[in-house]
Design a binder for these strands. Sequence first.
RNA 1: GGGCGAGUGGUGGAACUGGUAUACACGGGGGACUUAAAAUCCCCUGCCCGCAAGGGCAUGUCGGUUCGAUUCCGACCUCGCCCACCA
Length: 813
Amino acid sequence: MERSYDPSSLEKKWHEQWQDAGLYRTPDSEKERENFMLLTEFPYPSGNLHIGHWYAFALPDMLARYLRMTGRNVLYPIGFDAFGLPAENAAIQRGVHPEAWTRENIATMTEQLRSMGASFDWSRAVSTIDPAYYRWTQWMFLRFFEKGLAYRARTTVNWCPKDKTVLANEQVVDGACDRCGTAVQQQEREQWMLKTTAYAAELASDLQGLDYPESTKAAQRNWIGPSEGAEIIFRLNVPGQDDGKHSVAVFTTRPDTLFGCTYLAVSPELAKKWMDVGWEAPDAVRAYVDDALSRRELERLEREKTGVDSGVAAINPVNGGKVPVWVADYVLGSYGTGAIMAVPAHDERDFEFAEKFGLPVRQVIEPAGGDDSSGGSVYAGEGVLTNSGPYDGLDSAQARTKITAELASKGHGSARTTYRLRDWILSRQRYWGCPIPLISCKECGFVPVPDEQLPVELPPLDDFRPADDGRSPLAKAAGWVKAACPKCGGDAERETDTMDTFVDSSWYFLRYADPDNGGRFAGEDKIGAWLPVPMYVGGAEHNTMHLLYSRFWTRALNGLGLVPFAEPYLARRNHGVILGPDGQKMSKSRGNVIDPDEQVAKYGADTVRMYLAFMAPYEQGGPWDPKGITGVHRFLKRFWAFVHDRWESADGADSEDAAKAVHRANRDIGDDLANLRFNTAVSSAMIMLNALETETKVSRDLLRRMVRILAPMAPHMAEELWRGTLGEHESVHVQKWPEPEEDILREDEYELPVQVNGKLRGRIVVGRTDDERTAVAKALQSPDILRIIGEQSPKKTVFVAGRMLNILVDESH
RNA sequence: GGGCGAGUGGUGGAACUGGUAUACACGGGGGACUUAAAAUCCCCUGCCCGCAAGGGCAUGUCGGUUCGAUUCCGACCUCGCCCACCA
């Protein structure tokens, strides 16, 4: 008796069944099965699962299931990246404790994630807010601290003068506090930093060996931004001080233009440093620096170039020429040395500045061949040196080498590669993050909390706003802050900053290998069994920061001998974004949000999974089409009905076409899933069913095969058919992926398209092993072809076995 | 300004390594079933000419290589994403 397809009851039934049976619990090793951790980016527990989560998890789940069926011991882990600002906002707005809010969200989302029917191993679920997890975050931090990779430095933070609070970057909207609208200022403070730049060169060069999309590699390279050039030292004449007593280093990629330098420009940040060490700067300079430093970087970028003459003069080391030193905020304090040699003739920015302030422009490069010089008065390209004394006539590349070498020999500079990458500012003045396990002692400085006292747990607190002095809310937990110095035993204070949440996600994949280990972040044997990650699937928005931080973190651990590999992820694939039906990003305010729970209620999880797979290439994504999903739903209903109908009536035999249709789908779906081509995998299944529905002879063997190859895509329906209709006892998800049989797929005869002069003119039936001569002979008997070529005999023929035959004749008139 | 990528029917898209362009699906048209609707099923559906057979045109534009180009090369146009006063 045929039952109608009722996804809601059968899906629920199997979720419970799978869970009770521990179907997706993954052992650390299995006989004759290769371990494979298929990693996806663990979610932030916002409290509600959206369609993007389905895209991120349900589709890789198809790959996980396929890999399992083809003999791998697949770990498909899940967890929660659960520290972060929204929990604090909820606490402040609604009076819920951040932890309570977060834990509740985790509970809700766990249920929603289960409804997806993904093959997560929940027994290994990791949550970054568990002290048992962040204990190891702290432990790793201390190892970095001991090695000098974690250090303290002054940097600026966003400061709201009205709320008297430090703001995270995402709390600054158009330069204003997102709560009160007050203009945000910059404030300097001491922060903990991680020395990511120590690994900049390796992080850039080692990309080569990784199986990442080209765009991801480019994003990484771009972010690290290696730039080759030279550091050049200029002696300074500072009024009121001995000439040449001080000096400044500048970074340039164009030492060949050194003779064209007509002034130096230093960043306000560097000028401030000079003042701090005793420079008696003119009032105008002080005013300018104060003003520039109070502005946000974005604002500095947007306005017209400004600056002020510092009164200091610099000596060009290559010719002894004297040039003025200006302070200008178009120079970045955080890049290179914070100072530049300005060459207005060959740099747009310097030219703009020079023009505004009447500074000289001195041309020292002539475009090679003399052809160019089109456009404005600034030639920024390479060429031949002029007005450059002994270097005249050299080309830019030669001059760079020579000038740099001669400067180096006199101690006036050196070749240098500079990176755009900055050190990682780790400190956050926040409650809901991982505490930094250090104690500040007046006598001993910053002292690590002893390992055996880890984790340093977050103290209970009622008010989660940052303290009025801009310190973290933790500063308000007086009892917690007070501590004895682990070194001298004297009165001391705990560090009150917490860590950036990117820390938590920098090593979570390691914990999946050994989530319950109480003695180490993960046992060495477990790490050896599971890591590095062979495949990491995630959103393109994490191609820069998360990926880079995580790569850095792993490299740092590797440097300490704590993990036996430098790169955490051997392969990476990105997925696209699902947009609303209007083609816009989904948002409540636009009213274009597709709620996955509603879709599941209407069509079932299998339909939602398969529609997401079908709608577009995975790396691309695109708009959700409310009509489009019906096509997939119809397919599943037809598949269901087909298997039911045919199971009872099936006798032993298949028609040849039926067997071909199934084995072809068998092969194609396998290839497609293995390569994350989910859209064509679904299409292959549809083609199979379309072909079968008109076939009368379909055997039970063939039906079994059909159900198994559908299992990765529609796990619930496949299980119900397999164990219900087909009467099997073991889950379909522990079955072997069937091998498509070559004998069945091989065609003894096939239709060969025949072209005449490159135009398709007919088809002939040829044997699989027919050679060119046979094919041509057959073609020349075909009326379709004869009609075109008439009496002519072929001038030339091109034959591609299995593909086509092209017959070339003289064009008739 | 730099980097990466994409332009194929009314729509989402398919096409292996240069070899039958438009698979699969949505939408549309027609029909069956039904009192009706939903659901389901069948047929048609790139454009132009033609009753038909058939022919011509078409993968952003223009060129090139080739027996043959959506695919490779060059120039251009358009769009998207990421980065950006990085010296």
